[in-house]
Measured scan of single mutants.
Amino acid sequence: PQEEYKKRAKKALKKGDEDTAREALKRAGLSPDQAEEFIRRFL
């Protein structure tokens, strides 16, 4: 589910792994723009 992928993305970002985070967010159904926004907000 979407929440699970978002959790995964946050874990990846904590490790500084933005590529894995983007992949997880893409799987969560976010557009690339939404994924970038999510990452920017998190960092």
Rank of each mutant, 00 (worst) to 15 (best):
R27V: 09
P1Y: 14
K14P: 01
L43Y: 15
Y5G: 08
F42Q: 06
E36L: 06
P32A: 12
I39S: 00
E18Q: 12
L25Q: 00
E37S: 07
P32G: 08
A9M: 02
S31K: 05
L30S: 01
A28W: 03
E18I: 15
E23L: 06
E37I: 07
A35L: 10
S31M: 06
E18L: 15
K11I: 15
P32R: 08
K6Y: 15
K14W: 09
A28N: 02
E18H: 13
E37Q: 08
Q34P: 00
Q34S: 06
T20E: 13
E18D: 07
E23K: 09
A35F: 03
A24K: 04
A12Y: 06
A24D: 11
Y5K: 03
G29T: 01
E3V: 07
L30R: 00
D33H: 10
L25M: 03
A28E: 02
G29L: 04
R8F: 10
F42E: 09
K7W: 06
R22K: 07
F42I: 09
F42Y: 12
G16E: 03
F42R: 03
R8I: 15
F42T: 08
D33I: 09
D33N: 08
T20R: 08
L43D: 06
F38Y: 08
Y5T: 04
D17I: 03
E4A: 07
G29K: 03
K10T: 13
E3D: 13
Q2G: 11
I39Q: 00
K10Y: 11
I39E: 01
E37D: 11
P1H: 14
K26R: 13
G29E: 03
P32F: 10
Q2S: 12
S31D: 10
E37L: 05
K6H: 08
G29P: 00
Y5E: 13
K6P: 04
E4L: 07
E36F: 04
R8V: 14
E36H: 04
L30G: 00
R8M: 15
K15Y: 12
A12H: 05
L13M: 05
D19A: 14
K7R: 12
A28V: 03
R41Y: 09
S31E: 06
Y5H: 12
P1L: 15
Q2N: 12
A35M: 12
R27T: 09
I39T: 01
S31F: 04
K10H: 09
G16Q: 05
F38S: 01
R27A: 14
A35E: 06
Q2P: 09
G16S: 04
T20N: 07
K15G: 11
R41P: 01
R41N: 14
R27H: 12
E18T: 14
D19M: 12
K11A: 14
G16N: 06
A35N: 02
D17K: 05
A35K: 01
E37V: 05
L13I: 05
K10M: 14
Y5M: 12
E4C: 10
G16Y: 04
R22H: 05
A28Y: 04
L43C: 10
T20V: 09
R27E: 13
A12M: 05
R27M: 15
R8C: 12
Q34K: 07
E3S: 08
A21K: 00
E36T: 06
A35T: 12
K10W: 08
Q2K: 11
R27F: 10
Q2F: 11
E3W: 10
D33C: 11
F42N: 06
K26H: 12
T20Q: 10
D17L: 06
E36A: 07
R22W: 07
K10S: 08
A9P: 01
Q2D: 13
F38K: 00
Q34R: 05
P1Q: 14
K10F: 07
E36D: 12
K26G: 09
L30A: 02
G16M: 04
A21S: 02
S31G: 06
R40Y: 10
E36C: 05
A9R: 01
R22P: 00
S31W: 03
K14R: 13
P1W: 15
A21M: 02
S31V: 03
D33T: 12
D19Q: 13
Q34C: 08
E4S: 07
I39Y: 01
A21R: 00
G16P: 02
K26V: 10
E3G: 07
L43A: 09
Q34M: 08
R8D: 11
L13A: 03
P32V: 11
P32N: 10
T20L: 09
R27W: 08
D19I: 13
Q34D: 11
E37F: 04
Q34W: 04
K6W: 13
G16F: 04
S31Y: 04
